[in-house]
Simulated scan of single mutants.
Amino acid sequence: MSGYNSYKDIQKMIEKYVAGTATAEEAAFVESYYAYQDRNEVPDISADEKEALRKETFENISNQLNATPQTKKRIINIYRYATAAAVLLVATTTAYLFLHRASPSNKLENVSVKKPLDVMPGSNKAILTLADGSTMILDDKADGNLKELPGLIITKTHKGELVYKVLSKQSSEQVTTINTVTTPKGGQYQVVLPDGTRVWLNAASRLTYPQVFAGKTREVKLEGEGYFEVSKNKAMPFHVFTGNQDVEVTGTHFNINGYMDDGSINTTLLEGGITLHHHGRSQKIIPGKQANVSTNPFAIKVQTVDTEEVVAWKNGLFEFNNASLRQIMSQLERWYDIKVDYSSLPAKRYNGMVPRSANLSRVLKMLEVTGNIKFEIQNNRQLSVMAE
């Protein structure tokens, strides 16, 4: 495309792209510009892959231009190419432009992440602690059976799942046997409980549960964040205890964010129904609502939320909807296992999506471009945030 060879020209095209008035050719150029800007960081990408990238991004942009504003916010495609590097390039470039839409007038030169210092994203990592105190580092274990017990097998799958499979009637000893799965910072894991309930654990979280469920209730304890898909059983309600709250369900999908350093617990319902108990108070929650409790005051506050944003972490994304920089840094701190200096955070807010598969430097680069701030990563994984 002739006539577009300066930052000023590109900035005008970005503004047209955000407003939805750019031609398909102009939109394709905007996307391709960032792709080619980063191309020298992606080795071993063939000419065929470059052409595939150009065609795919052109089609993606055309779809975005024809979508509604709400749909545009949801679109994010991670293409499959012959090399993993090419996949990461498309994923991070797409997210880069989604974030740039939050503030189209910012200049592109405000990028200062030091490339030599970088942090890889988190992965499927967890520790299983058995009743006798012995531990298994799950990411080090081969897939297959981890433990065979009378009437029960504990298995690790290739998808990063820990599965409890009950084979026969449980013994009284198994009923009282407690197991714990703990994810470190930079880790996540899935657990399939003996009743078939699925739990996704976010970074720096812990789930404690009996080896088998018996009696009148199914009870587990959560620290940190977890997404639950509870198997239906009206005769045996499922309870999740987090801090001073108890979430009671018979079968439903919900997310609990109960990191103690956040000072509150947010419980979000996606499907079904739950009853939340907190300091003698009870509150029924319906889908699309989030209950917030804190130690002071003891009241249960209920509000409507964007459920896709709440569970974006489970789907491999960071999603920001008017999120403060402190909220974003808190998520990055857990997922990348870094230390953030919160002493000088500017009061900025962001909208957009970022894949959790991206290296930390690329996420910071996106934030810098859209917020006129800069970051510095020290060798001890200390991240400093400074205003431009």
Rank of each mutant, 00 (worst) to 15 (best):
G3N: 08
S6I: 14
S6M: 08
D9P: 04
K16W: 12
A22Y: 02
A27I: 04
A28T: 13
F29C: 11
S32A: 14
Y33N: 10
Q37G: 01
I45W: 03
I45S: 03
S46T: 14
S46I: 10
S46H: 05
A52S: 13
T57S: 05
T57K: 00
E59A: 14
N60F: 15
S62H: 11
N63E: 12
N63C: 05
N66I: 11
N66R: 14
A67W: 00
K72L: 07
K72T: 02
K73T: 03
K73N: 11
I75P: 02
I76C: 07
N77Y: 13
Y79H: 13
A82G: 07
A84C: 03
A85H: 02
V90A: 00
A95D: 06
Y96L: 13
F98Q: 06
F98V: 07
R101Q: 13
S105I: 09
V113C: 07
P116C: 02
P116M: 07
P121N: 01
G122N: 00
G122K: 02
S123F: 07
N124M: 09
N124V: 07
K125L: 10
A126Q: 08
G133R: 02
L146G: 04
L146A: 09
E148G: 02
P150V: 02
P150N: 06
I154Y: 01
K156G: 10
E161H: 03
Y164T: 01
N179A: 11
T180W: 00
T183S: 09
T183I: 08
L193F: 03
T197H: 04
V199T: 09
L201T: 04
L201G: 08
A203D: 01
P210W: 10
P210A: 14
Q211P: 04
V212W: 05
A214L: 08
G215Y: 10
K216C: 00
T217G: 02
T217D: 09
V230A: 06
A235H: 07
A235Y: 01
M236V: 10
F241H: 01
G243Y: 06
Q245K: 05
T252E: 10
H253E: 14
F254E: 01
G258L: 11
D261P: 05
D262K: 13
S264Q: 09
S264A: 11
I265M: 07
I265L: 12
G272E: 06
I274S: 03
T275N: 14
L276V: 12
H277P: 08
H277A: 07
H279E: 05
K284N: 14
G288A: 13
G288Q: 09
T295H: 04
K301V: 15
V302P: 05
T304F: 10
V305S: 06
D306H: 01
E309I: 12
V310Q: 12
V311Q: 13
W313L: 10
G316E: 12
E319V: 12
Q327A: 15
I328V: 11
R334F: 14
Y336N: 02
S344C: 06
P346H: 05
N351I: 02
G352Q: 15
M353C: 15
S357N: 09
A358F: 02
L360P: 07
V363P: 02
M366L: 15
I373L: 13
E376F: 06
I377W: 06
Q378H: 13
Q378R: 06
N380L: 09
N380P: 05
R381P: 07
V385I: 15
M386P: 02
A387T: 11
A387M: 11
